[in-house]
Nucleic acid binder design. Sequence first.
DNA 1: GGGGGCGACGACG
DNA 2: TTCCACGTCGTCGCCCCC
Length: 654
Amino acid sequence: MEKSESTSGDTPQPWQSYHTVFTNAKAGMDGVDKERVQRIVYEMSKGSKYFENEERKEAFTRRKLESMRAQCAMLTAADISNNRTVADRRILELEATRDLTRIWLHVDMDAFYAAVETLSNPMLKGKPMAVGGMSMISTANYEARRFGVRAAMPGFIARKLCPELIFVPVDFKKYTYYSDLTRKVFQKYDPNFMAASLDEAYLDITNVCKQRGITSGEIAEELRTSVYEETGLMCSAGVGPNRLLAKVCSDINKPNGQFILPNDRLAVMTFISSLPIRKIGGIGKVTEHILRDVFGINTCEDMLQKGDFLCALFSRSTADFFLSVALGLGKTETPQVMLRKSISNERTFSATDDEAFLHQKLSDLAEMLSSDMQKEGLLGRTLTLKLKTASFEVRTRAVTLQKYICSSEDILKYASKLLKDELPVSLRLIGLRLSQFNTDMVGAPSETRQKTLTDFLISGVANRKSTSDNSSLGSIVDSHEICSYEDRDLLDGSHLPDLEDKHTISNKVNSPHPKSRQNAVTGLLEADSSSVEFRCNSLDEVNKRANLLDDEAVSSSNQGELLLWVNDYKCSLCGFELPLGFVEERQEHSDFHLAERLQKEESRSETRTLMPRHRFSRKENIGSQSKGKKQKISPKDKGHIPIDMFFVKSCQNF
DNA sequence: GGGGGCGACGACG
DNA sequence: TTCCACGTCGTCGCCCCC
């Protein structure tokens, strides 16, 4: 790799060991004076908090490398022989999965954002330009790349590398517009094409090649011409028997070029064997470093030869990934559905420990996240708070709730609790992520998921009637579309007398659609000594619902709360007294009875599923639990790394 | 021992 | 002058509980 080479004699210079994501080569950077770029990047970074953090990470990687080298050294001849057998067997098994029947085309727009900006402002043509700002660059045009300027580089460093660099602010609206135009072209060749990002897509062109009786090269040529005619933008294409190879191929003749790899095993093996590992999607800076410095692996062929060591030191899935890559294997089928797994927002700001400011940021993020969730009609139950401290240390703190949430109030409530445990702290970034979606909701249009009032009432009544005879709460909660047992604040869940039961209830229940939640009024119905919470879009609905139930007396002076409080004061079940104003406490109290009730039900039924008990104790003590985690001495802090502590990822794309 | 949850980290555009 | 993003997904190790 070019970054380890020195042109300044035998004496190593400090900048030569400082690697960032943007010191490696990218298309259009072949003639760059790498030594100069690396020196400038180093000098601009040296002494900064960011730099210190990079050094910390680098030291950690070094320790990992040493540990792995030690492991390699400890392998006996017998170990190596055994692992050779394992590797050879896996290679045969993987080889058997080779599919050469599909033709994949990967299309990659050339310097997309920069090219779009040049289209709308032709004055930029021929001048070094970058899309982004002083803090970060999204894309640089080819004129700027000649100076070593590239994506993911901070703007102030880019300006140092190229003082005449023109900065253009990011305009996603514009890029989306042009992206849509390109996608219209892609669709003509593969209606099910896979968009990898605004400027990249994978097309299965097997059928179009057959139907039209022309080669993949001709299709690629035609597609690129068509994209240019439609948009005025240039792109590059790669064709291969799978997506992994097509992606590698599209980079070969960039910009405005293409490379065709025939669907032929020998051609694939010849192509892949000399390929530097860094060209493979999924092998980044760290993985390359490990493979090169521990195993002496530089090319895919090396990877095949060192299969025994890879099988000995990596997990099965990671070793499989490496061996697959070395064989030039990759995904050939088109996934039917691609479901989103998480949704997040994060913002960077000047580092501060001002708690009011941090809380405001958190609140803004909760709003943004909630808005995104509602746009996509999603509900999630795992909330993750991401923090980047002033020293660039990244922390994440997560909590899995028993209810699905999407409102900004809920998000902020739980996020605040997570943040509170970290204070005081000086931060430069806060992020929020929701995951573990309610799969019933994912992918369906919002409108189809919103319950009408009629649905609500009819199914609610039917459900209620079917269960009122035996008072089976288990049956009631199964009608999760209309009833929601509102979970109380589980972070403060210690007030619940039996959290396990509490969880069992809520785990079966889905919250209503976000739209219906927005103006929801919470009601609690008390019947057969079991309380059921529900939500309606208006107070009228609450009352109608209550009337329809025709159960025993429901009394309330609070229209939203229909719990059985005698004289608005005394619990009819146990006589516990709570004044009217104690809304939350009352709800907690009703939860207590609900849990109690369910416990009885549970003892009668052995068929229902239970969630592991530990989850409740963890929720109960989320604060101390997360502190406990933090206090845990990590292997790196102890100065050694356990033998199996490697984290080389497998690629999702191959 | 397996599985869920958490936290850290790698990778990519 | 400015001083290192944002969003998403994947793997791994650890902890805890059953």
